[in-house]
Design a binder for these strands. Structure first.
Lengths: 210, 210
DNA sequence: TCTCCCCACCCCCAATTGGGGGTATGGCCA
DNA sequence: TGGCCATACCCCCAATTGGGGGTGGGGAGA
């Protein structure tokens, strides 16, 4: 028995909003639990509804759907946001993604595709219209400047230990996990500190993440 | 009458390679015109075939599929490359995209999905498995996960100390920097550990960055 | 052959850390 | 007015950490 996916809709066009809701509610596994015609209404009530997924139009009368997404995402980190719009310019796409959206559908998407995208989003995917996906992928291209691809010169074992450190494990736990003594782990840590030019586990982890 | 989409396959596993070719050729609109078991063979012959789409395994015997993609894309800018692999670590995904790939499928993708992805790629899309798309989207926002500092319920002073921790400072240095005694810093750290449900500085910093 | 490096282990020791107590001041607010 | 919390400080103590030494074995290269 699959869980019912709850959906909120933020869309200024009433016919479109209602039509979308009716279509969604005609499905077995997705329910539209709230709709809003503008950002103000959504910001006021949507956090209390906390749907799994929010469909967000970009063109709202009072504020941009991007700003609206940013604020709602801050209040509802667990909710997945899908932009649903006619705009497909790169600038807006990237702003939407940085604002916290995980999906980006064009309005010309067929109804079945919308439902499929909602399910995909809820499963942890990032549904995007083809055109959007291509723009996102292309944005990776003009950056051939790969900054420092692993130049710390750590041996495989040393890196393994660093990775466990970065997961929050204390040396004793690392020793247990790897089936070696704590003394060995300590030896490795000393070497790692030397190579990374740090003095503590914490600094090493920061270097690892930085 | 739709144009026939020509496909090249670079894949070291012979059964997989053959099976994929047969399956593709069973379709009406897609034809596999060449297959290669390794990067060397692909680099030598694929430019002469110039298929519309190339399915590229990442795990090749002689060189990485990423490097192979980079060179082939340089020779065939009009050809669309789709990575086809079991790897889904972020590092490889981004390397593949910067190398010129426009699609990224996991091998667990059902056959129908593979054909659909080939068509999508040829139409100008960027087909990706759900897991891949989500990773791409998430990495697109390097620092959006910052605006949630209140969630852990730290006081301003506690957060200030945590921030210094996250810069690699040791408690004694924090005391000096803030002009308070180390004992005070230690008291704060205990509170911070409690609130964040961690036991060490390192874990606290990981939480801070996570 | 003879290094060099990686892996694994051991000892010592000073310093630090984390956990447990505690005290005192001041602000907020009900 | 009393409670609650943030800030700031103190003590003790076991355990851990970081830095300094060292011992081997095994594999890759020169």
């Amino acid at each position: 028995m699959p869980e019912i996916i709850t959906v909120g809709i933020v869309e200024d066009s009433a016919p479109f909003r209602i039509g979308l809701r009716e279509f969604i509610n005609a499905s077995d596994d997705v329910r539209c639990v709230c709709t809003y015609p503008d950002g103000t209404a959504a910001l006021a009530d949507l956090p209390a509804q906390a749907p799994h997924v929010v469909l967000m139009d970009l063109q709202l009368p009072d504020c941009s759907g991007i700003e609206c997404t940013r604020r709602l995402k801050a209040a509802l980190p667990g909710t997945q946001f899908m932009i649903f719009t006619v705009h497909e310019d790169s600038e807006r796409i990237f702003q939407a993604l940085t604002a916290g959206a995980s999906g980006y559908l064009l309005k010309r998407t067929p109804p079945d595709g919308i439902l499929a995208a909602i399910r995909d989003l809820h499963r942890g995917g990032a549904p995007m219209s083809s055109e959007i996906a291509r723009k996102v992928v292309q944005h990776f291209r003009p950056q051939p400047a790969r900054p420092a691809p692993e130049s710390h010169g750590l041996s495989p074992r040393q890196e393994e230990i660093l990775k466990l450190l970065a997961q929050g494990h204390v040396p004793k736990e690392i020793a247990d996990k790897l089936g070696i003594t704590i003394e060995t782990v300590r030896s490795y840590l000393k070497l790692i500190y030397q190579k990374l030019h740090v003095r503590t586990r914490t600094e090493a982890v920061i270097k690892y993440f930085g």
